[in-house]
């Protein structure tokens, strides 16, 4: 995975890298570690089980990390779902969840 791959994916690489003191290797290492992130699964499972508290916690954590790394295509739907979950909104989350899943697939393939 290169910065250009991430740019093609839609990430704001320059901003994310600047937060890492423009250390490219360090930035890529952190971005790579997102590939092992289990919170995506926790989010999905918690919503399925109707545990919106746990779902919010997971979504909120993901939002923070994705935002800091400027993984914009993933950050945007996660941000949206976090705000819905914050109010424990009783709604159909499946559309947002599948959007997230699709972007995650794309990201894992990089």
């Amino acid at each position: 995975m290169t910065p250009d791959d991430l740019r093609a994916f839609g990430a704001d690489v320059d901003t994310g890298m600047a937060r890492c003191m423009d250390n490219e290797a360090f930035y890529l290492k952190l971005v790579n570690s997102v590939k092992q992130e289990k919170k995506f699964d926790v989010l999905e499972e918690s919503i399925a089980a109707g545990d919106l508290d746990a779902a919010f916690e997971a979504a909120h954590s993901l939002k923070g990390v994705l935002g800091n790394l400027s993984l914009t295509p993933l950050y945007e739907p996660v941000n949206e779902i976090t705000e819905l979950l914050r109010g424990r909104t009783d709604t159909d989350y499946s559309v947002l969840l599948s959007q997230i899943a699709a972007k995650r697939e794309e990201f894992l393939a990089l």
Binding site: C20, M21, N23, L30, S33, V34, S61, N68
Partner: peptide, 14 residues
């Protein structure tokens, strides 16, 4: 203090 390793690591480098 942050529960996310990535966030802590980013703060560390800064």
């Amino acid at each position: 203090a942050d529960d996310e390793l990535i966030n802590r690591e980013m703060m560390r480098v800064v």
